[in-house]
Design a protein around this nucleic acid. Sequence first.
DNA 1: CATGAATGAGTGTTCATTCAT
DNA 2: GATGAATGAACACTCATTCAT
Lengths: 216, 216, 216, 216
Amino acid sequence: MSSGERVRAAAVKLFAAKGFHGTGIRDLAQEAELSSASLYHYMGTKEDLLVEIMATSLRRLLDAAAKATAGAGDPVARLRALVALHVLAHAAQPAETRVVDNEVDALSDAARARVVALRDEYEELWAQAIEDGVAAGVFHTAHPAVTRLALLEMCSGVARWYSPRGPLPLDGLARHYAELALRALGHPGEVAVTDLRPCLEVVAQVWDVPHQKDRK
Amino acid sequence: MSSGERVRAAAVKLFAAKGFHGTGIRDLAQEAELSSASLYHYMGTKEDLLVEIMATSLRRLLDAAAKATAGAGDPVARLRALVALHVLAHAAQPAETRVVDNEVDALSDAARARVVALRDEYEELWAQAIEDGVAAGVFHTAHPAVTRLALLEMCSGVARWYSPRGPLPLDGLARHYAELALRALGHPGEVAVTDLRPCLEVVAQVWDVPHQKDRK
Amino acid sequence: MSSGERVRAAAVKLFAAKGFHGTGIRDLAQEAELSSASLYHYMGTKEDLLVEIMATSLRRLLDAAAKATAGAGDPVARLRALVALHVLAHAAQPAETRVVDNEVDALSDAARARVVALRDEYEELWAQAIEDGVAAGVFHTAHPAVTRLALLEMCSGVARWYSPRGPLPLDGLARHYAELALRALGHPGEVAVTDLRPCLEVVAQVWDVPHQKDRK
Amino acid sequence: MSSGERVRAAAVKLFAAKGFHGTGIRDLAQEAELSSASLYHYMGTKEDLLVEIMATSLRRLLDAAAKATAGAGDPVARLRALVALHVLAHAAQPAETRVVDNEVDALSDAARARVVALRDEYEELWAQAIEDGVAAGVFHTAHPAVTRLALLEMCSGVARWYSPRGPLPLDGLARHYAELALRALGHPGEVAVTDLRPCLEVVAQVWDVPHQKDRK
DNA sequence: CATGAATGAGTGTTCATTCAT
DNA sequence: GATGAATGAACACTCATTCAT
């Protein structure tokens, strides 16, 4: 791992664990095994580092979601894919996603606008899937926008507690959440592992996570 | 509002908006319209202030939950009450609850232990309701603990986006979330406003929130 | 001397001796016998301190010059007064005037504009006196603007070398420079001490300098 | 222009514009279009660079002055030459001369001693000319040393404002200053352009400045 | 009850300089 | 020659906290 990568990794780890404002430049330096001055060869300001992490992470999620839902006309399949992908991303990359979800307030106005725009673009995929499902009569919900937010928060929460060392493997987690989400949308039924295979493949590509939960 | 109350209110507002580490003692002083030195007449350290806010807030939620579920043998009724109460608390007191949910990492080990113990005690009410519902055959979920966490995150998320100025009043919000939760637990069905009345009353008592959503 | 005054005095001394950029905040703190943090009770930024010194010093000179030339219709008398005043100010307040003369480049654009405006206002008094003298036929110079700049630089230079401990007292210095200036303007002749009395009085008032050179 | 020359030119430009302490090594590198590390192939420390600039510049002025006054027994001619040369040097090389005049305080004690010795040697030429003129009865001044300093400051000031794009060409400037100086010394009279020809030639040789003011 | 004054430790960032490549 | 990488020390400035008044 190069020094530049170590800096980024240190930032992800510490921003996730202690928050942006709770992480000092000297903490980053120590974690990256560099002097605090050397940090500045690999980053602009501390905020630049945060923005880069958030934007990259969000864009990756957005691209993965676009890929995983591409060509799926069925709203149920799309939502299932979105839920699975979101949950897997948050379970596999809890630090990155916690930073994205928790540190928006630490951004300056300009940077926040950029990040929020990406987030909105991503959420629009969810909104569209739910809306289409309601229109198609496969989803039933009195307040689609509220439901969307509820489901997103539910899925994002995974980053706050999931451990790959626990009893539930990644694919089981994804299946369970997909079922919860579809039930909440009034479309109950089992989710088969085969339904998730495309998602798992996208996840494996995008985040370098093995199909099996047997690593690290 | 007394000076002491102004200090606490300032802390809740700013800790919620900018985080504990993102809020300086001078910010608090300005918000409370006091000098920074005077702050220390009303608080111990900055961390003491945070701990007080978190502990008080959690204890209030815990007491309210205990009161709202007391005597209800029916797991469905208990869970409905817990969901409604949690959602209402987060919608009515978004700042307090955001502090509780987001700033645990800012606590020292000793303080964190206290706060986490309270939180665990509260979550145990949820765990018990779900477990009882599963045992009674009214809830169906393959991973009760995971489901519990998913629902808690879903409900806590309300504090991040709900606005009383939006189209959905508090009671409607509570009903909707209760329905989402029960559906997710495999127990679909409408939730009547009358089912929530006891909750709304507890909320009104505990958090000084009017029944009607027509205030500021 | 209060702490605030000590800070200002330290800044004048050190900015004059080592330049704005050559003076660290810790140097100021040491000179003012305060911690570097305490400095910030008495100043805004380091640049604010510089601006305050320059603006105050220039305004004082401008006011003194206006007072010393007020009511004098004779261009010769006005120029004599301006020269004497300028020289006395630079001899009596060498640190302040060196800061004003040398640190303009250290200012931000906005601050520089303010300071330069004051300086221009002051130089206009010189320009007017010279122009009037030329028009009246008492001064003879082919390039009045160049001459004005030459004389100003000549007089400002005093701050770079004059010592009250040297053989030449303040009033002798002023007389000598007044003679040099008038000669350069083609209006030779002795300058009597009585001609300078009004100037010396203004100087004594404005800069708290005794008439006699026998202090400190 | 070689890299080494670019470094020196960058230093002259930036030290003049922002001061020694106000100029960072990175500023120099950028101006010289080199990396900051590469700078150190062409210089010792930042201070060495400053010393080299000052010493070279002063020695060149000193040599030029010696050459321009060599063999001239007439104190008036000598002073006229000194003034013209000084003014021309400051008008033609404003950056170099500003560095020499303003950055003496930035030098370490040892380096300052070297530079001041050169400056003293140069000023001695002025002192000698004035003294000789007074002794010969062609100059009249009550305080020769003060007058010398006054005239030197007057002439050095040219570097702070003269622009070759203004209305006054170099030779006109030199003539005007020579007249001002001789008048101040009680020896009025026109200065003919032919009187300055030797000086202009020395200037052209030493500083690569064309006789005509029509360049750049 | 309230605060101006004060500070040691810490903030994010830049400094001039070195050195292996 | 030229530079990316590296750093200890310093930079201007803010931190949470104390205390005499």
